[in-house]
Amino acid sequence: MSPRISSLVFDKEERPRQATIITSLGTVKVQWTEVHGDRCWFTSGGLDAKKLAVPVIERIERLTQNL
Rank of each mutant, 00 (worst) to 15 (best):
S2Q: 15
S2N: 13
P3Y: 04
R4I: 10
R4A: 11
I5Y: 05
I5P: 08
S7Q: 14
L8W: 04
L8F: 06
L8C: 07
V9D: 13
V9C: 00
V9L: 13
V9I: 14
D11R: 01
D11K: 06
E13F: 05
E13V: 00
P16I: 01
P16G: 07
P16A: 10
P16H: 06
P16R: 01
R17G: 03
R17H: 04
Q18M: 12
A19C: 10
T20L: 11
I21F: 05
I21Q: 10
I22A: 08
I22N: 06
T23I: 05
T23F: 12
T23Y: 13
S24L: 07
L25Q: 13
L25M: 06
V28N: 03
K29G: 07
K29C: 03
V30T: 05
Q31A: 10
Q31W: 10
Q31C: 02
W32I: 01
W32F: 07
W32Y: 05
E34S: 14
V35S: 08
V35T: 07
H36I: 07
H36E: 07
H36V: 01
G37V: 02
G37T: 01
C40V: 11
W41H: 12
F42G: 03
T43D: 14
S44H: 09
S44G: 08
L47Q: 05
D48Y: 07
K50I: 09
K50Q: 12
K51E: 04
P55N: 07
V56H: 05
V56T: 11
I57W: 04
R59I: 10
I60V: 14
R62E: 14
L63T: 00
T64V: 02
Q65E: 15
Q65F: 14
Q65Y: 15
N66W: 07
